[in-house]
């Protein structure tokens, strides 16, 4: 748990009835907290007084920072979720999983080929996949994680990149994987290989880069760089904006 506790604002364990509205009881790492009904897990934690510095980011379901695991009473299932996207429910036992431990491997994308060998040489554990599907079940994005890993073993980088396109890197699959696969970085690599070597190049971007390299905009840039802050602000405010 990445949180800072202070006497005034630190987490407040159950102290009896909270005033007004209906409340539920959640358990954070085994300790009970009374929180209003209808909050996301993230907001419930903050209501309870946790000041999160890790394990929280965009609050919109895009950054993958706020992964949690929880169990509901009467279930054996270990469930996974993004705290900012999931409602807190009565009786929930939860823990933050703000980080799946793994060092980001370094590689030179220019020297790699868009094939499975490039991925396996850096992430050999991909070949340990047991097809158990624990990863897919853990994915808060609902991706077919196992299928993406399986696509790599059979050399289909394009399929893997597309299946993993919406991966936000929360790492929950990597925590659950019995083959200890580093999915987050594996998927980052297959998307990079796909984007660099397999997707058709955007013509207009290439043309624009050529223009820039040929110095077509140098003069304009020089002019801009000589302007004062006031002049820049005025220019910015008076820029052409497409009518909605």
């Amino acid at each position: 748990m990445s949180s800072k506790e202070s006497p005034e604002t630190g987490p407040r364990p159950v102290s009896g009835k909270e005033e007004g509205g209906k409340t539920i009881r959640i358990y954070v790492m085994g300790r009970a907290y009374e929180v209003p009904e209808g909050l996301t897990i993230l907001k419930a934690l903050e209501y309870a007084g946790f000041r999160l510095t890790r394990g929280v980011g965009c609050r919109g379901g895009f950054c993958g920072a706020c992964a949690v695991m929880y169990r509901m009473p009467g279930e054996y299932k270990l469930r996974t979720a993004l705290a900012c996207q999931t409602l807190a429910r009565d009786g929930m036992h939860l823990v933050f999983i703000p980080y799946a431990p793994m060092k980001k491997p370094r590689y030179d994308i220019e020297k790699l080929r868009p094939d499975a060998g490039s991925v396996i040489a850096i992430f050999p554990e991909v070949t340990r996949c047991l097809a158990c599907n624990a990863c897919t079940k853990a994915c808060p994005q609902g991706l077919q994680v196992m299928d993406a890993i399986q696509a790599i073993i059979r050399g289909d980088i394009a399929a893997a990149a597309n299946l993993a396109f919406d991966c936000i890197g929360c790492g929950l699959c990597s925590i659950r994987c019995p083959a200890e696969i580093r999915h987050v970085y594996v998927f980052q690599l297959v998307r990079r290989l796909y984007g660099k070597y397999m997707l058709p190049k955007a013509k207009h971007v290439e043309e624009r880069i050529k223009e820039i390299e040929a110095g077509k905009y140098d003069e304009e840039m020089e002019k801009l760089m000589k302007l004062s802050l006031e002049e820049l602000k005025r220019l910015y405010m008076s820029r052409d904006i497409e009518k909605a």
């Binding site: 396996i120 050999p124 070949t127 340990r128 059979r154």
Partner: peptide, 17 residues
Amino acid sequence: VPELGEAPSLALVAASR
């Protein structure tokens, strides 16, 4: 393993298992 990326998948999967 120097030729890790070159070996057929089935050799790598078998060795892993």
